[in-house]
Write a protein that binds this DNA or RNA. Structure first.
Lengths: 264, 264
DNA sequence: TAGTGGTCTAGACCACAAT
DNA sequence: TTGTGGTCTAGACCACTAC
């Protein structure tokens, strides 16, 4: 792959010109995903620039998701990310929660780490569960692994007044371990009818970068999910998913009537 | 705000130590959103490092969404971005499309730019619409502005065989201009019953950075939406939304029966 | 041992905004 | 006029890998 030298008439900064050329080369398919890419030294000599200029050009492509570096080894075209389609819907069946269902459907092993505590609710959590700050809630932190690789983490909150002393007090223990939230609450006679998911996207926090092994240039989905019965919220959770591993899929019906149900 | 000097015993690189201290200062509220932040020169003298090291520390905080720079002016704490909750739902009513409805509901002006062409479908688009590559499709590119600010762009595709020669041939002209997709197709007697949205998160492409004014350190939602009747897809669109302005909200009912509708 | 990316220094010139 | 961030150069040392 021959790349022309920089055009002195181009008004853009050198690093931008290099970035543009390299991006074009990647998009035109000159490099295969996973293939070794010209490193800092190569770019220095090819474009006659200082190392930091070559480095800056590469950094932009890393932050844009085109490249990744492996320290002491080299620079590579990022692999075509294998996105798992994650249909986000909730059923009343008991067998397994949605994560395990998705993973096994894709032929992956599914492991779930969970840790449960009873803690007083902070104001934000209390608001989401229609409680008062300080009321006791069951907090469970999860980490989900597919084929041994962390792929999702979440923290869920349930009012202690509802579940404490029942068979589902600790979500990952007892007869309903691994079942979905809807099935677990059904076992108490608490009938969940609605779920709301609010999706944000943001850079990973430092702890998420390590826990979920999020590479540079990747952001995360931040989902706030709340389950409600006809009268009250009964579970709320914050779910964090690296953006290079999942596509979220929502499928729903378009209502038949002209009525505005004033959902908001 | 006094910051201690670097700890020589700390094994982390200097730029990481500086980043960690600065992030802590921001999160603890030592700087207000929008407030001026110590610049490269200040950090150089305060921590006794070279300019590029100070610069690298700041770059990490910019990419993490904490700071923004204004060339020739300074470095500032990023404003608490007020997220707009964007309910994603579709109704059958005619009056206005969901974008205009939501924007006006939030007290914003809504402007839509649109350009329509008839083009042959490429393979990917043909697959999404159950057509053959080369079949004619109506492609419309949109840019949505709220209070004059670009906030969403999209490209939609409809089979020309369905709409060519009808009143809704060009989505943004005729009696159904500005109406939602469902209402437009209803006018042809084509009854949309389902919609699927597939959400990804990725860095903006260079053209999106300018068109949508996406700042560094912000990624975008990439939504592939497809409307279908009971028998076939009739419209598909790629929607791009900057991740720092919107939270997507999905609200739905949990089905009552144990049946698995095998939606996928 | 040669080559890699990560870290770091010590300079320089620039255009422009603020004062 | 002063200070800002943006760009760029020309070096250096490091730990580690296997090009």
């Amino acid at each position: 792959m021959e790349l022309p030298e920089l055009d002195p008439a181009d008004e853009r900064p050198k690093h931008q010109q290099i970035t543009a050329r390299l991006r074009q080369a990647i998009e035109s398919g000159s490099y295969e995903p996973g293939e070794r890419f010209p490193g800092e030294n190569t770019l220095m000599t090819r474009y006659q620039v200082a190392r930091s200029t070559a480095r800056q050009a590469l950094a932009e492509l890393i932050d844009s998701g085109y490249l990744r570096t492996e320290p002491k080894v080299g620079t590579f075209v990022r692999d075509d990310r294998q996105l798992i389609r994650k249909p986000r819907r909730y059923r009343r069946t008991k067998d397994t929660g949605p994560f395990a269902t998705d993973a096994r459907g894709a032929g992956l092993s599914a492991d779930i780490e969970a840790a449960t505590e009873t803690v007083p609710a902070d104001q934000a959590t209390a608001d989401r569960l229609n409680l008062h700050a300080g009321d006791q809630v069951i907090r469970t932190r999860y980490r989900f692994l597919a084929n041994g690789r962390p792929i999702q983490s979440s923290t869920s909150y349930e009012p202690a007044a509802l579940t404490l002393g029942t068979l589902i007090e600790r979500p990952e223990e007892g007869p309903y371990a691994g079942a979905g939230v809807v099935a677990r609450f059904d076992s108490l006679g608490v009938h969940i009818t609605h779920v709301t998911e609010e999706i944000r996207v943001r850079p990973p926090r430092p702890d998420e970068t390590t826990d979920l092994q999020v590479p540079r240039g990747v952001h995360v989905f931040d989902i706030r999910r709340t389950f409600t019965t006809d009268s009250r919220p009964v579970e709320t959770a914050d779910i964090t998913i690296p953006g290079d591993r999942y596509a979220l899929v929502y499928a729903f019906q378009v209502p038949d009537d002209e009525q505005d149900p004033a959902t908001d």
